[in-house]
Design a protein around this nucleic acid. Structure first.
Length: 499
RNA sequence: GCCCCCAUAGUCUAGUGGUUGAGGACGCCGGAUUCUCAGUCCGGAAGCCGGGGUUCGACUCCCCGUGGGGGUACCA
């Protein structure tokens, strides 16, 4: 047997996939790729009530979005399949027999209601609410009797009553748990499905997982897992428990933190490579000051030993900054390809743009990418490139469109631009500056109203370059239309809604 | 309640018992850019949780406290 590294990402297909899950998947993947090992995707759908096929699709989608691949899994197969736990029930049964035969597992007839009641009592008395083990002592006759009465049962694992379980964790270091503090956990539910602890241990063994890399919330469970491994006589993998990602209020990430699902970030306009980079830097640092790195650089420098123990907060602002960096550094053409679907959806660009139109789009992207943090901001901030139907922002109205001398300037500019040839940024600039000179005002006094009229906003890229990319007739019409509306007093500042 | 873990600016982090007057990044503030800023450049404010030890010397080691987090399910 080779000593090749094998890791697994083992999500439960319940609900949505949040950013913390993706983080765990990413670190598993980074370690696998760095070590030249295998990444296995295993679906832990032992929660029959909450597992859904929709959730499963969301997992695939999330992993694919950020660019993680796997060497073995439900869809790609592999030698250790099946990779979905609900399809491995007979396997668990086999291992259960071993435990039963060894006297390390037993039937428990306590009902959930009884258990909850007893836990309450224990809590009230201030003692650890662990299972009291009452069914552990049942004789075969007593069990027979309970079954005859129609009592339903589950199977519990008999944990050690004394001693300490020591975990050597690559990230957390040495952690000890007292065996006397936990009760016998359920390993097979009344339904016949295994619980997480049991299925996980059996599968990690059968799939020859060498490194279990998962969130730190599983660290206490490792005590049970190790005892299960000992009882079964199977090898113990290495453990690496990752710190959690917390919401802004420092609590575990959940729906009430707003955007936590991977799909939320995709919809918000994050580039997967930026998210990849950003997530890699949560709980891990390359040790130097480089932050924006390629996937290859991250893989090259990654190590579990360099992972931090303390939890981190997902800072959306920094994530957006990182995304902006990626947009800036990306070539315009590939970026335009990412943008196209959003522009089509917004009804701003046709699904199959002509070659000329595409060339033009690339130029627009090149002009705008410097200042757009997200794909979606490109669409909103760059709207005026694609349509004459845009709003005049309040700042534009206040500062320029509401001025008495504006209509006249815009009109004069429209008249000159109408005849301009060629239509490029140099000649446009010459015309605009020339007008300013004739009017004996600074260039800014023409540039600003012009920008406000042509784009509806006070900010954006170089005005002359921007105009050069717009259609000449459109620009003239926009100037005329704005002048007209300004004269009619339609462009006065709007009443401030939120203040 | 009990068990475990964590603790460098608002956030992500680097960091060594003395070379640190603690480095970088996001964000924030200020200046510049006479075409704006949501762009760019420059500058700035902001931190080693508190208290005890150990030591010639602690941000760095130990203890206690405080704060935060996780676990304590027939969820994973």
């Amino acid at each position: 047997m080779s000593n090749k590294v094998r890791v697994r990402f083992a999500p439960a297909p319940t609900g949505y996939m949040h950013i913390g899950n993706l983080h765990t998947a990413l670190f598993n993947w980074l370690f696998a790729r760095k070590q030249g090992g295998a990444m296995i995707l295993r679906i832990e759908d032992t929660d029959e009530l909450r597992s859904t096929s929709d959730a499963l699709q969301v997992i695939y989608q999330g992993l694919k979005w950020i660019g993680l691949d796997w060497d073995e899994g439900p869809d790609v197969g592999g030698e250790s399949g099946p990779y979905v736990q609900s399809e491995r029930l007979d396997i668990y049964q086999e291992y259960l027999e071993r435990l039963l035969d060894a006297g390390r597992a037993y039937e428990c007839f306590c009902t959930p209601e009884q258990l909850e009641e007893r836990r309450e009592v224990m809590r009230a008395r201030g003692i650890p609410p662990k299972y009291d083990g009452r069914c552990a002592q049942l004789s075969e006759d007593e069990r027979e009797e309970l079954r005859a009465e129609g009592g339903e049962s589950c199977i519990r694992f008999r944990v050690k009553e004394t001693g300490t379980t020591v975990i050597q964790d690559i990230i957390q270091g040495e952690v000890c748990y007292e065996n006397s503090l936990i009760g016998d956990p359920v390993i097979v539910k009344t339904s016949g499905f295994p619980t997480y602890h049991f299925a996980c241990v059996v599968d990690d063994h059968l799939m020859q997982i060498t490194h279990v890399i998962r969130a730190v919330e599983h660290l206490p469970n490792t005590q049970i897992h190790i005892q299960l491994q000992e009882a079964l006589g199977i090898a113990r993998p290495q453990y690496a428990h990752l710190p959690l990602i917390l919401g802004e209020d420092r609590s575990k990430l959940s729906k009430r933190h707003g955007a936590v699902a991977v799909t939320d970030y995709e919809e918000q306009g994050f580039l997967p490579e930026a998210m990849f980079n950003f997530l890699a830097l949560l709980g891990w640092s390359p040790g130097d000051e480089q932050e924006v790195m390629t996937r290859e650089q991250i893989v090259e420098r990654f190590s579990l030993e360099a992972c931090d123990k303390s939890p981190s907060i997902f800072d959306v602002q920094k994530a957006e900054w990182m995304n902006g960096e990626y947009m800036k550094r990306m070539d315009a053409a590939p970026l335009a390809e990412r943008l196209l679907p959003l522009l089509v959806e917004a009804g701003l660009v046709e699904t199959q743009p002509s070659a000329g139109r595409w060339q033009w789009l690339v130029q627009v992207v090149d002009l705008m990418k410097e200042r757009t943090p997200l794909l979606t901001t490109f669409v909103t901030w760059g709207r005026y490139f694609f349509t004459n139907d845009y709003e005049y922002e309040n700042r534009a109205r206040e500062k320029w469109l509401n001025r008495e001398d504006t209509p006249e300037k815009l009109g004069a500019l429209a008249a000159r631009l109408q005849l301009l040839e060629p239509w490029d940024h140099q000649t446009i600039e010459g015309t605009v500056r020339g007008l300013a000179e004739e009017l004996e005002v600074s260039a800014a006094k023409v540039i600003h109203p012009c920008r406000a009229a042509v784009t509806g906003t006070t900010i954006g890229p170089s005005l002359f370059h921007l105009m050069g990319l717009l259609d000449q007739d459109d620009v003239v019409r926009r100037l005329q239309r704005t002048a007209q509306r300004a004269r009619a007093g339609e462009l006065a500042p709007l009443p401030n809604e939120n203040e």
